[in-house]
Amino acid sequence: MRSMEDPPHGSRARRLVQARRVGAYLTAVATAAGYDVRRRQGGRAQLAAVTGLSLTTISRTLDGKTLPLPSQLATWATVLNLDHRRMLVESGLIPEQRGPQGVRGEVAVGVLSPDEAMNAWGITDPIIRKTLSGSIAQAIQLQEELDAAGDFGVVALG
């Protein structure tokens, strides 16, 4: 999890907008699932207990101050009984994919999520999926940094 005060990877303003959007979305779905997530109402503590995330992490996420890690988003989706991809689309983290979906062995037109790519490749082991998903997320982040650097310099890796 990266605080909005930390030096961000990518545009600080964009990350702040994303964090607020994710926070608003998670607040709405948690409330719909029966958690009273208003401050001091107990719902945030209940979410911390069932997700295994700290109360601080839950609060900063719901308040739009922190953009959760992919593994934390997966935990939220599981606990709130949400489709992982739908949650990413509805919270604004990934665009809605339209058009034909590829069948196994074919390349789909458009952008695949890491989960869709792993499904297409037949990767089912949860440890391999988690490792690959983290690597993909890091690769995307590094590419965004390189793209943003353009002709202004090279991004330090490490």
Rank of each mutant, 00 (worst) to 15 (best):
D115K: 08
G110M: 12
W121V: 10
Q46E: 14
G122S: 10
L67N: 00
G105Q: 14
T61V: 15
S54H: 07
Y25K: 04
L62A: 02
L82M: 09
A77C: 11
A74Q: 12
S113C: 10
P68N: 07
T75M: 11
S133I: 03
L132E: 03
S113E: 09
W121P: 07
M87H: 02
A49P: 05
V50Y: 00
I58G: 01
T51I: 11
V89F: 00
A28V: 07
V107F: 07
R98Y: 14
R129T: 03
P114Y: 03
R40H: 13
V50C: 03
G42K: 05
A19S: 08
I128A: 14
L67T: 06
R44N: 04
A120Y: 01
E116N: 06
R86T: 14
E90V: 03
N81E: 12
Y35K: 05
T131H: 11
V37Y: 00
S59M: 05
A45R: 08
T66G: 09
T27H: 04
T124H: 11
W121I: 10
S113R: 08
V29T: 04
L132G: 04
R20P: 07
V17L: 08
T31W: 00
E90W: 02
Q41T: 15
V103S: 15
A28C: 09
I123C: 04
L112G: 06
G92S: 10
P126C: 10
Y25E: 02
T124E: 13
G92D: 04
G34Y: 02
R98M: 15
G102W: 03
N81L: 12
T78W: 03
D63S: 13
T131Y: 09
T31F: 00
S54E: 06
T31Y: 01
N81H: 15
L112W: 00
R129N: 02
R21P: 05
L67S: 01
G42C: 09
Q46P: 09
R20S: 11
T57K: 09
G64L: 03
S133M: 05
Q46L: 15
I127S: 13
A49W: 02
T31V: 05
G105S: 15
L93N: 02
L26N: 00
A120D: 06
V17H: 00
N119Y: 08
E90D: 15
Q41S: 15
V111I: 13
Q41R: 15
L26P: 01
R39D: 11
R129C: 02
Y35R: 04
L73A: 04
H84M: 09
A48I: 14
A74Y: 04
A48T: 12
V37E: 00
L93V: 11
A117W: 08
G52M: 06
R60E: 10
V37H: 00
S113N: 10
S71Q: 12
G122M: 10
A32I: 07
G52R: 06
D36E: 12
A32Q: 13
R44L: 07
E116R: 05
H84E: 13
I128E: 13
G23C: 05
V17S: 03
T27P: 03
T61K: 01
N119E: 12
S71G: 12
P126L: 07
